[in-house]
Simulated assay, not measured.
Amino acid sequence: MAQTNVETNASAGRVLTITRIFSAPPALVFDAFSDPKRMLQWLGPRDYPASYVESDMRVGGTWRACLDSQASGEKLWHGGVYREIVPGKRLAFTFAWDQADGRPGLETLVKINFEDQNGKTLMTFQQSEFDTPEDCDGHREGWNSAFDRLEELLAQD
């Protein structure tokens, strides 16, 4: 008799995990996450591309970005603090959207591993923990769209 796995813990549906294989070495993929000029070329979904990125790339340093709606002009500011930086291997940082009053909203933790796969990169991206499964799903759509853009950028290198 087959068993069905059912998530029963408190974080069910509120942890986002995305894996991608990029046709570029880990150092190049890591650079795309650490260089603000490169981030401007891919960060954000297609309909909300980044218009601003700044980064103090050191443990304890901050990052900040703005995504602009192509349709309405809405600006979505967000930022966080770097928690771990291992060039070409790992990156971890907090992530929070700005609220209407300018203060940060719910803080999540993003952890990214970059693993060499014969000259390509296996990226494992995890963001947690969201308030609701719907928030998690929204980020899944947004990050996947951004990673599609990243894949296109890496293909140009």
Rank of each mutant, 00 (worst) to 15 (best):
E141Y: 05
Q99C: 10
L150K: 06
D157P: 06
A50N: 07
A146P: 00
A2D: 05
T8G: 05
P49E: 13
A96P: 10
V29T: 11
L153W: 11
F22C: 11
R90I: 12
D98V: 09
K75W: 10
S128T: 08
V53L: 04
A65S: 12
G119F: 15
H78I: 01
D31F: 08
A146K: 06
E84P: 03
S69I: 13
T121M: 10
Q127R: 07
L91P: 04
F93S: 00
G61P: 06
D68A: 11
E152D: 12
Q3V: 00
S34F: 05
T132R: 06
G73A: 04
E74L: 01
D56C: 10
N144M: 00
D31H: 09
V81S: 06
V110C: 13
T8Q: 05
E7L: 03
D98H: 11
L16N: 04
S51F: 08
F125E: 09
R83E: 14
V59T: 13
Q3K: 12
P133R: 08
D35R: 08
P25A: 11
S55I: 02
S69F: 15
I18Y: 07
Y82W: 14
H78V: 08
G61D: 09
R38C: 12
S11V: 14
F22G: 04
P26S: 14
A92R: 06
K89E: 15
V86N: 05
G88C: 06
D101E: 12
A50Q: 05
R64C: 02
D135A: 14
T8W: 01
R20L: 04
T17V: 11
L150Y: 14
F22N: 01
F95K: 00
W97F: 15
R14S: 12
R149Y: 15
S128Q: 12
R103Q: 15
F125T: 04
D148C: 08
S128V: 03
S72D: 02
P25T: 05
F147E: 07
T17N: 02
G105N: 08
Y82N: 14
Y52K: 12
Q3D: 09
I21F: 09
T124G: 07
F33K: 01
S55G: 01
D131H: 10
L67C: 02
V29N: 09
R38E: 15
S72C: 05
P49W: 12
D101H: 11
P104G: 06
L154F: 13
A24M: 01
M57R: 05
W63V: 10
G44C: 01
W97I: 03
A50V: 09
H139Q: 10
W77P: 03
A24N: 00
F130A: 02
C66I: 13
E107Y: 06
Q117E: 14
T17Q: 09
E7D: 06
A10N: 11
E74Q: 14
A96Q: 11
P25R: 00
F30W: 07
V15G: 06
R20W: 11
V86W: 08
L153H: 02
W63R: 05
N5K: 03
F114L: 08
L91M: 07
E134M: 03
Q156F: 11
R83V: 03
K111S: 15
L153F: 09
L153G: 01
I21M: 09
E115M: 07
V6K: 04
E134D: 08
A65E: 07
D101Y: 13
G138I: 00
F22D: 01
R103C: 13
V59P: 02
A100W: 02
G88Y: 02
S23H: 09
N113E: 15
R140H: 12
